[in-house]
């Protein structure tokens, strides 16, 4: 049974652990994300970021510990995972009761993809497919948006546009966001808080209190960037 309560946190994880076989990947991890807060999750490859995201998404059956998350949540995976046999707009509103073409077109318009509404997913470019997946997440009006390297497959230029898009959509709809990324600049551009994960826990929790919109020239940016990189084991 899932008990429903109301509170001002979108995610609260209490002492959760997860292992694959005898390899502990997440060990006694705690995490709180406030409603409407934008949190970026960084960490070395294989440290368990996607595992954590799947736990928060409610897709992990074997996690131990207390997991309390927003009921209305939406996920966008690194691979867009569109259903190839449904046209783009049908993919967008699949599973949303009462939503039809109009709602799909509105959501696709927000990611500037209206003109591809009637296309088969197999004919989309990589960036278009990821934007479609984003529209599919947004149309659910989530209180919690989970993004697992959503721009991983994009080229540097498209990536900047897509980041701007996410920043705008977040400002407009104000969901809590957990963004898994490898890109320190992406974290600094978008997030209120940047988390660094290592050895199964959150080892650093850095508030990013720069005024928006943020650029490389924002004062304090370079310092934060160096700090995060150092915590990820990179020195410049």
């Amino acid at each position: 049974m899932s008990a429903t309560v109301k509170q001002a946190t979108a995610v609260s994880l209490n002492g959760i652990s997860r292992s694959f076989g005898d390899r502990g990947i997440i060990a006694d991890l705690d995490l709180e994300i406030g409603a409407g807060e934008f949190v970026a999750l960084l960490g070395a490859s294989g440290c368990g970021k996607s595992t954590l995201l799947r736990i928060v998404a409610g897709l992990d059956a074997e996690v131990t510990g207390e997991v309390v998350v927003a009921r209305r949540r939406a996920v966008s995976f690194q691979a867009p995972r569109l259903l190839p046999w449904k046209r783009v707009w049908r993919n967008v509103v699949l599973g949303v009761p009462g939503a039809g073409r109009a709602e799909a077109l509105a959501a696709l318009g927000e990611v500037m993809l209206e003109h591809r509404a009637g296309a088969w997913p197999a004919t989309l470019s990589g960036g278009e497919a990821q934007r479609a997946a984003l529209a599919r997440a947004l149309v659910r009006q989530p209180d919690l948006l989970l993004l697992d390297e959503p721009f991983g497959a994009l080229d540097a230029l498209t990536r900047i546009t897509a980041q701007q898009l996410v920043a705008d959509l977040w400002a407009k709809h104000a969901p809590a966001v957990l963004l898994v990324t490898h890109d320190v600049d992406e974290a600094l551009r978008l997030a209120d808080r940047a988390l660094v994960m290592a050895e199964g826990r959150i080892v650093h929790d850095v508030a990013v209190s720069l005024p928006r919109p943020r650029t490389l020239e924002s004062s304090g940016y370079v310092g934060l960037r160096r700090e995060l990189l150092a915590q990820l084991g990179v020195t410049e």
Partner: peptide
């Protein structure tokens, strides 16, 4: 306020 769900496996 956000409505929350306790997840069960």
């Amino acid at each position: 306020m956000t409505s929350l769900t306790r997840l069960d496996p």
